[in-house]
Design a protein around this nucleic acid. Structure first.
Length: 279
DNA sequence: CGCACATCCTGTGTGC
DNA sequence: TGCACACAGGATGTGC
């Protein structure tokens, strides 16, 4: 559920399900999901706690508890699954051959929230406070926060010599942008992903800022309709490909100039762009 | 400090 | 069909 828009949509759908609920029991099916914390730590700190709210920072989903918080990261493929009861969870979870993969489940006083990631990159951690979580502390401004302004962006771009694409993926500057929406924002701003961040004029930075915000807003709208359905383990966001202009369009015509979209490699990952109209 | 790179995992798609 | 290999929406630790 990777980038900001997807996690935001999930947070909004999840909020009414968990707000005010008490965690009765923590089920750990695959302890790798809490690494490097021990599974007993999560159970010990989360059981009997009340969930005050669900929130998000960058790509992190947070369950704010009456004491401490649970931090979830979905990495590539992590997802949430909702069960009506503990018996439904135990009946369906990890039962071969066609059971639902579940790594960690929070049994609530009403319903069960499951965290699943077959690839086991995703993580669920508990922290005493926001400040106690190193990865949250390291995050820069959320890309959809009010404080993320054109001048904020320009100041940080000016301080970096990295290629634009790699700058945008650095969560310590701006939080929430990943491989898809960095490619999309750069396409909309007509900027070459390989260009050094500090080569942008104030006008270029303003164009990039506008592109980032509009790309993320547009994607969020798409992610909210239809809203995520945690009851269906197969569910995934629909229709996002319709709004993509560069990502995964290698060889297809650029929607502006008609030339082929190219796939290049940056920092070991794919970047899609139009080398003709992105300068 | 900034940066390049390997590493953590498993599923799916592609070409032979 | 079987198999090998490339690739995947991400973050972190290492060594330079």
């Amino acid at each position: 559920m990777p980038e900001l828009p997807e996690v935001e949509a999930v947070t909004r759908s999840l909020r009414p399900l968990v707000r005010g609920r008490r965690i009765c029991c923590v089920h750990i099916f695959h302890p790798i999901a809490t690494k490097p914390q021990s599974p007993t730590r999560l159970a010990k700190f989360a059981e009997r706690r009340r969930i005050l709210d669900a929130s998000r920072h960058g790509k992190y989903l947070l369950l704010v508890l009456d004491r401490g918080l649970i931090e979830m990261h979905f990495r590539f493929d992590g997802q949430l699954i909702w069960f009506r009861s503990a018996s439904e969870l135990l009946r369906r979870a990890n039962q071969s051959p066609d059971g639902v993969h579940v790594d960690v489940a929070l049994e609530l006083d009403k319903g069960v929230l499951g965290f699943a990631d077959q690839r086991h990159f995703g993580r669920v951690h508990h922290w005493e406070s926001f400040e106690a979580c190193p990865s949250l502390r390291a995050l820069g401004l959320d890309a959809l926060s009010r404080e993320f302004t054109p001048s904020f962006l320009h100041a940080h771009l000016s301080a970096s010599r990295r290629p634009l694409k790699e700058f945008l993926l650095d969560q310590s500057k701006i939080a929430g942008i990943g491989n898809i929406y960095s490619a999309e924002a750069l396409w909309h701003a007509r900027l070459d992903p390989r260009r050094p961040a500090n080569s942008l004029s104030r006008t270029d930075s303003a164009k990039l800022h506008k592109a980032i915000v509009s790309v993320l807003r547009r994607a969020l709208e798409c992610c909210l309709d239809p809203a995520p359905d945690f009851r269906d383990p197969q569910w995934w966001f629909q229709g996002l490909e319709k709004i993509l202009r560069a990502y995964q369009r290698e060889g297809l015509p650029c929607r502006r100039c008609g030339r082929a979209i190219r796939r290049i490699e940056q920092g070991g990952r794919s970047t899609y762009c139009c080398l003709h109209c992105q300068k």
